[in-house]
Amino acid sequence: MNPRLAKAMVNGLLLGVAVVALLPLLWMLSVSFMTPGEASSLPPPLLPKHATWANYHELFARAGMGRYLLNSLLVSVAITALALACNLMAGYAFAKLRFAGRERLFQVLIGALVIPAQVAMLPLFLLLKYLGLVNSYAGVIVPAMATIFGIFLVRQYARTVPDELLEAARIDGAGELRIFVQIVLPLLKPIMVTLAIFTFLAAWNDFMWPLIVLTGQEHYTLPIALASLSREHVQDSELMMAGSVVTVLPVLLLFLALQRYYLQGLLLGSVKG
């Protein structure tokens, strides 16, 4: 087969798959600008007849979507910052520091990956209830401060840091904290960006755990608020699509802006780990 023809066929196939993947998102965006009831007509229109911002005005002026947006931003940023600090330190310790039971403890952590997260939700909820953290932002943030996957990801990448570099710093009198901050962290920048994006997206899109912990509506994050709003406006597809756009658009733009660094960190970790 002609190489140019083969290349054109592959590119055409990839373009077709991309269109199929993007079509629901584009239709969601289109419906969010339609007037009430317009999306329910048959056949469903692809574009609004008279585009309007009324659905977004309804969300922020009456449904309180601005408060829920700030809640999601606060929770996601706090989880990302704390998870980065904990996962980086733990991953580096498992990779480069020698202490009793290091390998056995790491094997236990890896084994815990096969346990479904739902299994731990009930005991975790009871623990948070005992600590008085139910219906608070801390109840959502604290359990996400460190993850086994994050520790594993950092450990695999930190193993590529040369031992000779760390030993030279120790010989020069640098303490472990100074070595970690001034030498190790700059070398871990690619995996830091990857882990930050991964953690932020997971925290932003999390539905189950905030639904369990947050009992007061004033603490709702965007996914919970959107589900609650759908029960009140079950027939208002246009309003629901506007809420979906508000929920999806920030993380979609973030991922598109940083996807190069995200993929670079994953690929470097897989090659060097």
Rank of each mutant, 00 (worst) to 15 (best):
L84E: 05
L84S: 06
L84T: 04
A85F: 09
C86T: 10
C86Y: 07
N87R: 04
L88K: 00
M89R: 11
M89Q: 09
A90D: 00
A90I: 02
G91N: 01
G91D: 00
Y92E: 02
A93V: 03
A95F: 05
K96L: 06
K96A: 05
K96Q: 07
R98H: 10
R102V: 08
R104H: 02
L105A: 14
F106N: 03
F106P: 01
V108N: 01
I110K: 10
I110V: 15
G111C: 07
A112T: 11
L113W: 00
L113R: 06
V114L: 14
V114P: 04
A117V: 14
A117D: 14
A117I: 14
Q118T: 11
Q118K: 06
Q118Y: 09
V119C: 12
M121A: 12
L122K: 08
P123R: 09
L124Y: 04
L124D: 13
L124E: 14
F125P: 14
L127E: 11
L127Q: 15
K129E: 15
Y130T: 15
Y130E: 15
G132V: 05
L133I: 06
V134R: 00
N135M: 09
S136V: 01
S136F: 03
Y137K: 13
A138D: 08
G139F: 01
V140E: 01
I141S: 07
V142F: 07
V142I: 11
V142L: 12
V142N: 01
